[in-house]
């Protein structure tokens, strides 16, 4: 029996862009993933407030969605994003880490469906939500 979560973890932690953004995989299980991105001044989008750029939150959501797909029991190999929609509720509080949780709630032979939510230290007040479709790559 192959440990999908272990493979997904190994793969996610080897992604150069995720490493550059300081993402750390904190939880991964069947179709679920959680990734934390520490506050980093290099990611600031608004210098007047210190709020990190929405683009960094998008990258976090995309990575977390991909991790959720890869950890799903029915996903044979890799995945790529087909589309992703992100809704921004508010700016992440400066100085706080952003934590994304993604769930692959349905998967077919070709497509995986994912939703994700991002929080800072306030767990009742999401920073952003996302939903997306990912490819299901076959082992050739």
């Amino acid at each position: 029996m192959v440990d999908k979560a272990a493979i997904a973890r190994q793969f996610i932690e080897a992604i150069p862009h995720s490493k550059a953004l300081g993402m750390v995989l904190t939880e991964i299980s069947d179709g679920m993933a959680e990734i934390v991105m520490a506050y980093n001044p290099a990611l600031i989008g608004d210098p007047q407030t210190g709020v990190i750029h929405g683009g960094a939150v998008s990258a976090l959501m995309d990575t977390c969605g991909g991790a959720a797909v890869m950890s799903h029991a029915d996903a044979p190999a890799g995945t790529a994003t087909i589309d992703l929609r992100i809704d921004y509720m508010r700016g992440a509080t400066p100085g706080q880490a952003v934590r994304a949780r993604a769930e692959c709630y349905h998967i077919t032979r070709s497509v995986a469906f994912v939703r994700a939510t991002a929080f800072d230290e306030d767990p009742d007040n999401p920073v952003a939500t996302a939903s997306g479709a990912f490819t299901v790559e076959r082992l050739s």
């Binding site: 992604i15 490493k19 683009g55 995309d62 990575t63």
Partner: peptide, 14 residues
């Protein structure tokens, strides 16, 4: 550092 899939390689979707 923009790479998302080192095997292809391809830019990160994020």
């Amino acid at each position: 550092k923009l790479i998302g899939n080192p095997l292809l390689p391809a830019l990160h979707g994020g």
